[in-house]
Design a protein around this nucleic acid. Sequence first.
DNA 1: CATTTCTCATTAAATTTTTTCATGATCCAA
DNA 2: TTGGATCATGAAAAAATTTAATGAGAAATG
Lengths: 307, 307
Amino acid sequence: MIQSILELRHLRTLAALRDSGSVSRAAELLNLTQSALSHQLRLLEEQYGAPLFERKSVPIQFSPAGLRLLQLADGLLPRVSEAERDIARLAQGMTGQLRIAVECHTCFDWLMPAIDEFRRRWPEVELDIVSGFHADPVELLRGRRADLAIVSERDAAEPVHYFPLFRFEIVALLAQGHPLEARPHLTPRDFIGQTLITYPVPDDMLDIMRKVLTPRGINPTRRTAELTIVILQLVASRRGLAALPRWAVQSYLDRDYVVPKPIGKSGLSGELFAACPPSLASQPFMEDFVVIVRESSFLNLRGIELL
Amino acid sequence: MIQSILELRHLRTLAALRDSGSVSRAAELLNLTQSALSHQLRLLEEQYGAPLFERKSVPIQFSPAGLRLLQLADGLLPRVSEAERDIARLAQGMTGQLRIAVECHTCFDWLMPAIDEFRRRWPEVELDIVSGFHADPVELLRGRRADLAIVSERDAAEPVHYFPLFRFEIVALLAQGHPLEARPHLTPRDFIGQTLITYPVPDDMLDIMRKVLTPRGINPTRRTAELTIVILQLVASRRGLAALPRWAVQSYLDRDYVVPKPIGKSGLSGELFAACPPSLASQPFMEDFVVIVRESSFLNLRGIELL
DNA sequence: CATTTCTCATTAAATTTTTTCATGATCCAA
DNA sequence: TTGGATCATGAAAAAATTTAATGAGAAATG
């Protein structure tokens, strides 16, 4: 007798498949390997004796059977998370606070949608953004003035729990027709004699300085601007170079407003982590926040890689 | 990071737990061991950090968290089966027919509720009951005049697929104050010189004759009646003994209308199977029919044991 | 047009999860 | 208190899921 092998796992896979458009990306979203999903999907298709989707198209196309399961997933999964949140509340009086400290200027791009979703899911949790930018957000955690900090480096010495978020490429940005435009990528030396346009923050909060230029003793002329759009405007007007996350400027690149160049032969990558005091790390709403951030970033930002 | 371990399996367990009232019975309903469920439930309770139900009460009492999950199960499981039936229809033009042949008089007691549920789930399947009682229902299968037969014995020689349904006790029924009433159980010899009241069918369709009396050359005087209630009326009026499934007469026993006695030291048990042509055995609606019969019987008939 | 890259499938192996088996504890009723 | 029923638990077995490694095919790139 054939038992129903369908589990929520499969529905989660189908939903991720649709949201991400391909098996490999869905695997990344689910923290599994592509192979695992491939097996999972094959088993499902065997069980139902019907294909669930068309692999040879981007994004993949679902078959009628696949669509029906997807419809099921959409009906079920939100109710599952809702129930689990209810139970978390039942088990432990779930009315905490979440004060978020942000060190990185551009982070608000992806943080805001995540925060909106979080508010929807955890209405009882008091949510705040610790205003201003902080040189050492982890200090705020230790002093219990924030509950979660978005940081770009782990410090193993700190008594803090780090949730990995994602990795992304930092690209150098040049004006159209800039002398360096022909290069396949920029080397650290290419920055000598250039003006570097950055946010007004200390050097060690800028990956380009901390990881690339400072170690080699290179210290270009600096100019700062608060807003990404202003930095780009300055680059386009040939006032200098900038180095920013690719996802932060993707829409400008699409319009050829400025020209991106990899930094170093294999590119420069930045990482982001959510840091929180160990005592809060296993709070359901804290874990859920991280999940939301990862999901919404993965779906909204092009070219990032989940950690 | 704690991933949600909740799967449909767990919800099915919770629902079975409520429907059956105890962990062991739920295990039987799900074709698992009591131990498996015990582990499963412990893991769930660990995950949520809250008990799901109160074990030391019959039937078990659900905790708020348990109730919340149960509510989820009730919302989800019907939609899952519905979706799976839709997919079965999509995959294979799912408009078959199901003609049921029944050899056993009392079977209609449990068959009717199951058939009602089946009609609800598979409206396209044409459902019929092959009228009258048939000495050899498997013959009807072979001649393609029926698609499914309820039988009480497997015949390995037949080219037929048997789905086991359940096992039950056949008890002898005596009038109040009958000379044999004091006995803890009846032996085959006790039937010598008695009148045996049965349905009007051949001996080898009566378990009491086929398994107990005929092998020992005992052949009591016979009297027949079509209806269970008539048989019981005759027993109560001291016209003889009967031997019937306990579940078929439970309500009369509850009212002390007649007195039940085990047949033989360890009781006489009967079994029921659903037989169908091998070609139909893996049709989704056929499998589902068997599932429905097993579930509804288990929940409605007291003292049966699923096979 | 060759080459590289990306994506998915497939096999075998590793790992994890689930289930069973065997047994013990507890409770209830006779 | 004994027997019967129910549930818990630890260890072993079985099953499932997942990963690793690799190959095949399509699409993109030069």
